[in-house]
């Protein structure tokens, strides 16, 4: 059985998404949640580019353009999330969200 490269990378994208989603829910530290969001986003990008890889004679440029803008947007989201996390920390003194305070211990 031969594994098509696009299938391998698309499944890897699903895997990255799942790893990121688990960490996003299960870990409490806000910086880890931000890292998890980035990993999830990369998984989605990998899936889109793997899908675009199937077409001939060149890879489909439209999903590639979407991912290109998506990468820049995800960096901006990271910057904004870091500013929000900083605000949470200056306000509460902790780097976790409020409802994790009771159950997290």
């Amino acid at each position: 059985m031969t594994l098509e490269p696009y299938l391998l990378y698309a499944l890897a994208g699903v895997g990255l998404f799942a790893i990121g989603l688990y960490a996003l829910i299960a870990r409490t530290h806000l910086l880890r949640k931000i890292l998890a969001l980035n990993v999830m986003g990369t998984g989605v990008f990998l899936f889109l580019i793997a899908i675009a890889y199937r077409s001939e004679p060149v890879a489909d440029p439209v999903p590639q353009a979407m991912v290109l803008t998506g990468i820049v947007v995800s960096v901006c989201a990271t910057g904004l999330a870091l500013a929000l996390a900083h605000r949470v920390q200056t306000t509460t003194g902790r780097m976790v969200l409020a409802e994790n305070d009771e159950s997290g211990a």
Binding site: A50, Y53, A59, Q64, V67, L68, I71, S74, T78, L82
Partner: peptide
């Protein structure tokens, strides 16, 4: 690069890895 997306490889190396790393 392997998936024939050199534009995105450039953006990932500069933005996704470089700037995000500096931000974090």
């Amino acid at each position: 690069m392997r998936l024939r997306a050199p534009d995105i490889a450039l953006a990932e190396a500069a933005v996704g890895s470089g700037i995000t790393g500096a931000l974090l």
